[in-house]
Design a protein around this nucleic acid. Structure first.
Length: 847
RNA sequence: GGCCCCGUGGCGGAAUUGGUAGACGCACCGGACUUAAAAUCCGUUGUUCCGCAAGGGACGUGACCGUUCGAGUCGGUCCGGGGCCACCA
């Protein structure tokens, strides 16, 4: 029999599946539903190994569930708005639309070569007019419901490109494209009021049982709930000042009050105080980069004002402006308690402010306790605190809160680190925000019957700033309210908005409203979502928020979009560098004896660490090259083998060859097996070889099923290797047992190597496709053997083993154990003190 | 600085949840087939010691300590690697 021809076979079966529309999901079905989704790709133009890994895993689950009898939804689409298209447009003079759709066409072909069981009839791109049309409706619904608001905010402004930049696009304080120093600028921007859902989003994390603990924790930290007290100081100029603290118990340790440089009061004072204005400017120079903050010195400026201690009007605290107080958290003002906060301590030492410990550890003497250079943040008893003395931290917190609440100048509050989501982008390749600005009427939503607000056919990039803003014809609009002259909002929505509801849209992609409730309620939540850990916070949090928003509006039933989440690891490869220190790609090298040499010159190159595949390190492997060489099944099998799916996997040529060998091996087993029983022949096993083979078969079915249920692809793969080894060694088994084993091998590997499975299934004489064949069932009676091997330990060390009938009497087991030669030798005639028998497992003899 | 995760052969990694550590794959080595190679098949492979051999002993899951008849698994301390957040009051 000829070798397996992956190239021909794969093309053939892909066409066959398509002709039969096997993976188009019916709207209604009596079967239980299962929605399997992988994070949709950005259409960069070609798929990379990360996509291959991601979509292979999703496909295995989809095919596995389908075989198990689920009604499976497994769609694919394109996260198609965003900067790369604009950059390509600028650099190559093409339209971002053409560039994007050409990329989509190219990537669609590549994905199809992988043999994924996708329902392509539901495909859409977020840059499709129809998609962003629906998204604009959704935006207006959110606006109407009060989920969207417009506000002035500090943003990263690139003065050369004349645009706002995302935080990630600011590198060392400079715009990543222009290299210009980024300014902070106050601009009117649109926000989604995600903070209104902060508590829900936090609380519901506990219900997401099939999410990685790590992701839930990251979201929890990001939301950053802290409970504390907000209270008022009366200032010497007669004004009131709100501060937030999580440590009201340390109020008698206060030695100053500090304002953020951006605090309204600071701004007001600066108008009459040039030195303060200069100080504020100085503070702004410090970037937000981690390294800078690390080194940044605490800076302060004495405003000359004082604040009265809330429990003692005669106790006046200096009001300082301090660079370490952030306007974006709490109230932008704090009281400083140096003894119990490191930042306050650094500040107090520098400006010679008092340091009074008020919480003293239980093993220290309150009279002599000194914090030195490190603030004490641990537990203890209150001291130097008048009526709080002797209390625990918790008691004191409650007491202070109660007293200030009673006095009407304080209130227990909850503060979140989470900020509202700024969604305005001064970018032309995005979903236009459907709003109109009228001089008379202010901000007016575009009426729904005037939607969509379409992007212009031609976007001119030869302008400074946002091309939409420069496009007068596009920008000009009629005010829907007064019919007067008005202009459109020229900002587009953050592309994270596009990806925040696409999974809902997949449930009814052609519906003429954003959401078809019946379809959404049937399919949602997504049963298994798969993607990279890099989306642990942003995308997954936004999607959760959007779903809650749509649920509040009655558009969907569920409030959590993803019941199961899996975050897969990255794909890595060795790195190579030549003598000059330049990265060298794997294609340029040749390996001999564990060393690497340039293919052209024979010069040796240094082998570096295995790192995430990236263009910059030149350590990428193109999936299409591998598919062309070995076929899709081999690359799929590799992605699932050996390494657990959540960990980083290293691509190696040797590993790929190993996978290719296995493909051939399975093919050979199926095609070279002479004298198999006819399909459907009842299986019986009288001889030992056949019995053992049947047992191996049914054990494999049970194990592979179990492993796939839990996404342990690597363990499922190992089981299939074991089964194929057993089959290879069982040619003396009877024809029906061998058929049973081979059919199990084929069907169990079908989700992972679907094309090979079809070819083998056909070779085994079946007319129906493997993809249409139900998942094999195992007979529990056959997975168990009637005898067990029991290890014998003496004092915890293994000294022998015995084979016993299953569930043999403990006394018999003990007797057999004591009779074992190795055990006798180890006992050396000494009588056992105690014998522990764990049925069917182990015996431990203690002497 | 805070929070979290992970350390098992030459490598990727298994190990019913406290019960035979190293399944399975890669690599290596030996053998078969072949004129030869490729392909394929069979076998060996944690370290170390004793033995001509059959076989047997000791050590072994980052380190140390503890709990237990029994620890890769549970607890403590430390070492090493990684992640997320971070002047968040």
């Amino acid at each position: 029999m000829a070798r397996y021809n992956a190239k021909e076979s794969e093309k053939h079966w892909q066409a066959e599946w398509e002709t039969r529309a096997l993976f188009a999901t019916p709207g209604h079905s009596d079967k239980p539903k299962c929605y399997v989704l992988e994070m949709f790709p950005y259409p960069s133009g070609r798929i990379h190994m990360g996509h291959v890994r991601n979509y292979t895993m999703g496909d295995v689950i989809a095919r596995f569930r389908r075989a198990q009898g689920f009604n499976v939804l497994h769609p694919m689409g394109w996260d198609a708005f965003g900067l790369p298209a604009e950059n390509a447009a600028r650099d190559k003079g093409v339209s971002p639309r053409d560039w994007t759709y050409e990329n989509i066409a190219a990537m669609r072909e590549q994905l199809k070569m992988m043999g994924l069981s996708l329902d392509w009839s539901r495909e859409f791109a977020t840059c499709d007019v129809e998609y962003y049309h629906q998204q604009q409706k959704l935006f207006l619904d959110f606006y109407k419901a009060g989920f969207v608001y417009r506000s002035e905010a500090d943003v990263n402004w690139d003065p050369v490109d004349m645009t706002v930049l995302a935080n990630e696009q600011v590198i060392d304080g400079r715009g990543w494209r222009s290299g210009a120093v980024v300014e902070r600028r106050k601009l009117s921007q649109w926000f989604f009021k995600i903070t209104a859902f902060a508590d829900e989003l936090l609380a519901a994390l506990d219900t997401l049982e099939r999410w990685p603990e790590k992701v839930r924790l990251m979201q929890k930290n990001w939301i950053g709930k802290s409970e504390g007290l907000r209270f008022q100081f009366s200032l010497s100029n007669g004004e009131k000042l709100d501060v937030f603290t999580t440590r009201p118990d340390t109020l008698f340790g206060a030695s100053f009050v500090a304002l953020s440089p951006d605090h309204p009061l600071t701004q007001e004072l600066a108008k009459k105080d040039a030195k303060l204005e200069a100080f504020i400017a100085e503070c702004r120079k410090t970037g937000t980069a981690e390294a800078e903050i690390e080194k940044a010195e605490k800076l302060g400026y004495d405003t000359g004002l004082t604040a009265a201690h809330p429990f003692d009007p005669d106790w006046q605290l200096k009001v300082m402006v301090a660079n370490f107080v952030l306007m974006g958290y709490g109230t932008g003002a704090i009281f400083g308690c140096p003894a119990h906060d490191q930042r306050d301590l650094d500040f107090a030492r520098k400006y010679k402010l008092s340091v009074t410990p008020v919480v003293v550890p239980s093993d220290a003497d309150p009279k002599t306790f000194d914090v030195g250079k490190e603030a004490y943040t641990g537990p203890g008893k209150l001291a130097n605190s008048r009526f709080l003395d002797g209390m625990t931290v918790e008691q004191a917190k409650a007491e202070v809160a109660a007293r200030l609440e009673k006095a009407g100048i304080g209130e227990r509050t909850v503060n979140y680190r989470l900020r509202d989501w700024l969604v305005s982008r001064q970018r032309p390749w995005g979903c236009p925000i459907p709003m109109i600005h009228c001089e008379k009427c202010g901000v007016v939503p575009v009426p729904k019957d005037q939607l969509p607000v379409k992007l212009p056919e031609v976007i001119n990039f030869n302008v400074k700033g946002n091309p939409l803003d420069a496009d007068t014809a596009w920008k000009t609009a009629t005010c829907p309210a007064c019919k007067g002259h008005a202009v459109r909002d020229t900002d587009t929505l953050d592309t994270f908005a596009d990806s925040s509801w696409y999974f809902t849209r997949f449930t009814a992609p052609d519906f003429d409203e954003p959401v078809n409730k019946a379809a959404a309620d049937y399919w949602l939540p997504v049963d298994q979502y798969i993607g990279g850990i890099e989306h642990a916070i942003l995308h997954l949090l936004y999607a959760r928020y959007f779903t809650r928003g749509t649920a509040k509006l009655g558009m969907v039933k569920v409030s959590e979009p993803f019941a199961g989440l899996f975050t897969q690891g990255m794909v890595c490869h060795e790195t190579y560098k030549d003598d000059a220190g330049n990265w060298v790609s794997p294609e340029e090298i040749e390996k001999r004896d564990g060393k690497a040499f340039l293919r052209d010159t024979g010069q040796e190159v240094t082998i570096g660490a295995s790192e995430k595949m990236s263009k910059s390190k030149k350590n990428t492997i193109a999936p299409e090259t591998i598919i062309a060489e070995y076929g899709a099944d081999t690359i799929r099998w590799f992605m699932l083998s050996d390494t657990p799916p959540e960990r980083d996997i290293e691509w190696t040529d040797a590993g790929a060859e190993g996978c290719w060998r296995f493909v051939q091996r399975v093919w050979r087993l199926c095609t070279e097996a002479a004298g198999l029983a006819a399909p459907g022949t009842p299986v019986s096993a009288d001889d030992d070889v056949s019995k053992a083979l049947r047992q191996a078969t049914h054990k494999a079915i049970a194990a592979v099923t179990e492993h796939l249920e839990h996404l342990r692809f690597n363990s499922a793969v190992a089981q299939l290797y074991t089964l194929s080894n057993t089959i290879g060694a069982s040619d003396k088994a009877n024809p029906a047992a061998r058929r049973e084993a081979l059919e199990a091998l084929v069907l169990l590997s079908a989700p992972m190597m679907p094309h090979l499975a079809e070819s083998c299934w056909q070779a085994l004489g079946h007319d129906r496709l493997a993809a249409e064949t139900p998942w094999p069932k195992f007979d529990p009676a056959l997975t168990a053997s009637d005898s067990v091997t029991i290890a014998i330990q003496v004092n915890g060390k293994r000294r022998g083993e015995i084979t016993m009938a299953k569930n043999a009497d403990n006394k018999d087991v003990e007797a057999a154990a004591l009779a074992d030669e190795g055990v006798k030798r180890a006992l050396d005639g000494k009588p056992p003190k105690k014998v522990i028998v764990v049925p069917n497992r182990i015996v431990n003899i203690v002497v």
